[in-house]
Structure formats: C-alpha cells, structure tokens
Design a protein around this nucleic acid. Structure first.
Lengths: 122, 122
DNA sequence: TCCAAAACAATAATGATTATCATTTCTATA
DNA sequence: TATAGAAATGATAATCATTATTGTTTTGGA
C-alpha cells in the first residue's frame, strides 16, 4: 500500500508521502507515515536517503546507486558508480574496519537545470 | 583563533567547539560559535561534514578525504578514496550534470572498536 | 463474543540549527 | 581624541524535521 506510493514517486520526503497518502486516507497522521516508512526501511523494503541539509528522502530502488540533489529544482537524480561499493569494502578490509553502510550525496545541477542555464546565457 | 581549536581537535561538532572555546572565553554564546564556524566554512578555511543522523561536524583538513562514523565509540575516522572525486567528475561530464560538491559518510566500526569486538568474542 | 496486542491520530517534546534584536566593540576618518 | 557607522556579539526566540507519548480504535484469534 505504501510501497506503491513510494515506488511510483521520485525519492519523496516523508512529508510528500504524507500529502500523497492523504488523498486516499484523509485522516492519516504524519506520525503514522513516519512510523510505517521506518518499518519499511527496517525490513529492507525501501531505503532512506539521509540528506544532511534537508528532509530525509525515501527510495524504492534497492539496487546499488547514489544520488544527486539538484540545487536548481530540488529534484533527486540517480547516479551510477559501480565501483564505489567495491572500493569502500576494499578500504575496510585493508584498514581493519567494519563497514556497515555508506551514503553518498552529490550536490549540483541536474541535466535539465544545466540545459536551462545554458539557454539563459545565450 | 577558532582555527586552532578546529585543527587541534578531531572533527568536533559545533557544541564540542563551543565547550572548548568556553574555557578561554566563558561568555561566548553558541550562536556566535555557529556563526563563526559558518563563516570559516564559507571562506573555505574549514569544511563541514553533514552527518544526516546527528550533529554536523567540522574538519580542518582540506585535502580530499572521506569519513567513517564509528557506531561503536562515535568517533570520526578519515578514509582515503583517491579515485572517488575523479569518478564523480567523470559521471558528471558523461551525464551532463554540474557537480558542485559531494559528501560520503561511511557507517561502521573503527579499527579500535573492531579490535575490542574481537577480544570480547574470544 | 471477548480480550489482548497492535495500530492509530493527535499532540507534545526534542534537538540541532538559524534568526532576531538590542547592545557592545571595532574602525576609520575628521 | 572624538565620533559616526559598521560589524560582531550574547541572549533568546523561532524553526524544522523527527521522535515520543498518550489515550483511543481496530484487529485477529481463542
């Protein structure tokens, strides 16, 4: 039920999920959304993207990938970096660390905003 | 003045800096610490490490490196991943993005906590 | 049907950070 | 040296996302 919401939308924040779900269940509370999103994260159905300077976002795509947070339009774009996980695990092995997880957030402009900027400068 | 504090300590939070500076200037306010740390970040003298599930931390080392946030003792260890910046810039070029910055936080156990764990299991 | 456990809505609490505002401290120039 | 204007500061309030609490409602099994 929530899963559909999350997988359909693009990296929504808890509040965005709340607004969406409210269309179907107008009496749902924000606390319930947080609680259930937390549960879905806990059981591995979705993933939480911790953005340090903003609200956390949720992602239904479990395959390894990273995120670009666009400072132009605020969207979150997927980024493929197939070697990163391998590299981090290797550093962990070499340095005697235990890697439990990692999050990479790239800040910048998405493809559309870059295009927009180019047009403005013409 | 602040710089010394920051460079001496190990990735302190704003509050840690506040506690440290208070020993010299007992009347300084937390707001001033935040303000001046922000200024130092703005002019590039130090760097802010945005930890999504906790307080931000500040780092006087400007050379490219990343961080492991230890879930055992709460310390922050430096991690070298010399290829990461290059890879991100390459992806940016290939995908038509403008990269403005990026932050990688690794969660896990530091060397000491791994050792501690091994001893406990003996 | 009944009862315990789980889920819920509403709201309060928390914690880090930022904004506000009145006051103090610099700074440069006459 | 005096002084006006700018910048910095301390104290405190405000903000924002998230979590905790509490009392009520729903649910599923005996």
């Amino acid at each position: 039920m929530y899963r559909a919401v999350i997988e359909s939308s693009e990296h929504p924040t808890a509040d965005t999920v709340y607004q969406t779900v409210r269309k179907q269940c107008p009496d749902i509370s924000l606390g319930t959304v947080y609680r259930n999103l937390g549960r879905l994260v806990e059981c591995g159905a979705i993933r939480k993207i911790g953005v340090s300077d903003g609200s956390d976002r949720f992602d239904g795509t479990l395959a390894e990938h990273y995120h670009l947070l666009c400072s132009g339009c605020g969207c979150v774009a997927d980024i493929q970096l197939p070697e990163l996980g391998k590299q981090i695990r290797q550093v962990g092995r070499e340095s005697g660390l235990e890697i439990q997880g990692y999050e990479l957030i790239i800040h910048g402009l998405c493809k559309d905003c870059v295009q927009k900027q180019i047009k403005e400068n013409e």
